[in-house]
Amino acid sequence: MTPPSPTAPADEPLRALEAASDLLKALASPVRLGIVRELSEGGKYVHELVTALGVSQPLVSQHLRILRNSRIVTTRRQAREIRYHLTDEHIAHIVLDAIRHAQE
């Protein structure tokens, strides 16, 4: 491990590890992983996620709230519905790689 740069605070590497840990905690649910997998294909409405995952609408909404609070997903209102999107495609890579690894 390289020492922190003279301009970086000494606790910066620890903060990055804590942020990564928080991200992984937010993803630590089969339903949330499924949501991210579905959103990796593009924005979706709640009813589309319910159909794709085969779980109830309240359960999907509960997990979407956690993902929104963790800034993993964002929303866009379109008419009377809300469309969910991943904030960053890197999240999709993390989840899709983890799923592929688990299937090996």
Rank of each mutant, 00 (worst) to 15 (best):
P9S: 06
T51M: 09
T51W: 10
A20S: 08
K44D: 09
L14T: 07
Q62K: 13
E48G: 15
A19C: 02
S56N: 08
Q62E: 13
V73R: 05
H63V: 12
V46E: 11
T74E: 10
T75S: 14
S61M: 12
A92Y: 05
R37Q: 10
K25P: 04
S56M: 08
Y45R: 15
P4E: 00
L23F: 00
E104P: 06
I72A: 08
V95R: 00
D11N: 01
H93P: 01
A8S: 05
V50W: 03
H85D: 02
T87Y: 05
L33A: 02
H93F: 04
T74F: 07
P30L: 10
I35R: 08
K44L: 12
K44E: 13
D22E: 14
Q57S: 12
L17N: 09
S5V: 01
P58H: 09
Q103G: 07
A98S: 12
I91K: 00
A8V: 04
N69D: 15
P9W: 00
A26P: 11
D88M: 09
V36T: 01
P3M: 08
S56I: 07
P9M: 00
E89G: 03
T2H: 05
N69T: 14
V73W: 04
H90V: 06
L86V: 05
R15L: 10
V95Q: 02
R100I: 07
L59V: 11
L49W: 10
T51Q: 13
V36F: 01
T75Q: 13
E48H: 12
D22K: 13
H63D: 15
I35H: 07
L59S: 11
S70E: 03
I66T: 15
S21G: 09
R100F: 08
I35G: 12
E12I: 06
L33H: 03
L39R: 08
L64Q: 15
K44Y: 10
